[in-house]
Amino acid sequence: MKVIRIAAALLIGADGRTLLVRKRGTQAFMQPGGKIDAGESPAQALARELHEELGLVVAAEQAQFLGEFSAVAANEPGFEVNCQLYRLDVAQDLVPAAEIEEVVWIDAGSVDHLHLAPLTRDSILPLYRQLIA
């Protein structure tokens, strides 16, 4: 299976909720982030993507590495995503930009009403619930 290398953020707001995004033309909500370009570190890719997608300006060194996770890609059939996940605590308002159509803040409760990417559903949200418990 082909692998897409991405960096993603577990963004945690001042109220403890976390942010999910949905890209234009897709159904699945997932963590903000994106593909790591050649010559970029995962943290650099994350900082670039957060700026492009949400207008969020962060320094790469602010991101706290949480681990590496893999899952079937939500939007690219036949691909797997390999994700370097980072935690960032944010206080400012975030505005969807670039390919992001919708953002939603969720808490550790039920997200059954949302269509979630496999990586988000199976790996990242369980970790989020442990972190804020």
Score class of each variant (00 low, 15 high):
1 M>L: 14
1 M>H: 14
2 K>L: 08
5 R>M: 10
5 R>Q: 12
7 A>C: 14
11 L>K: 00
12 I>P: 01
15 D>Y: 02
18 T>D: 06
23 K>V: 05
23 K>N: 05
25 G>H: 01
25 G>N: 03
26 T>Y: 02
27 Q>K: 13
27 Q>M: 11
29 F>Q: 02
29 F>M: 04
29 F>C: 02
29 F>V: 02
29 F>S: 01
29 F>T: 02
30 M>F: 14
32 P>E: 07
34 G>L: 06
35 K>A: 15
36 I>N: 01
42 P>C: 11
44 Q>A: 15
45 A>G: 03
47 A>G: 05
47 A>Y: 02
47 A>T: 03
48 R>H: 07
49 E>H: 12
50 L>H: 03
50 L>G: 01
53 E>S: 04
56 L>K: 14
57 V>L: 13
57 V>D: 09
57 V>S: 11
59 A>L: 12
61 E>M: 05
61 E>A: 06
61 E>G: 03
63 A>S: 01
66 L>Y: 07
68 E>W: 08
69 F>L: 02
75 N>S: 08
77 P>T: 08
78 G>E: 14
78 G>C: 14
79 F>E: 06
80 E>Y: 15
81 V>K: 00
81 V>S: 00
82 N>L: 15
83 C>N: 06
84 Q>W: 15
88 L>R: 09
89 D>N: 11
89 D>G: 08
91 A>V: 14
91 A>G: 12
94 L>R: 06
95 V>C: 08
95 V>H: 07
98 A>C: 12
99 E>I: 12
99 E>M: 10
99 E>S: 10
101 E>C: 11
103 V>F: 09
103 V>W: 05
111 V>F: 00
113 H>T: 09
114 L>C: 11
116 L>F: 04
117 A>F: 10
118 P>M: 02
118 P>H: 02
119 L>H: 03
119 L>K: 02
121 R>S: 08
122 D>S: 12
123 S>I: 05
124 I>F: 08
124 I>Q: 04
126 P>L: 13
130 Q>F: 12
131 L>M: 10
133 A>Q: 12
133 A>F: 12
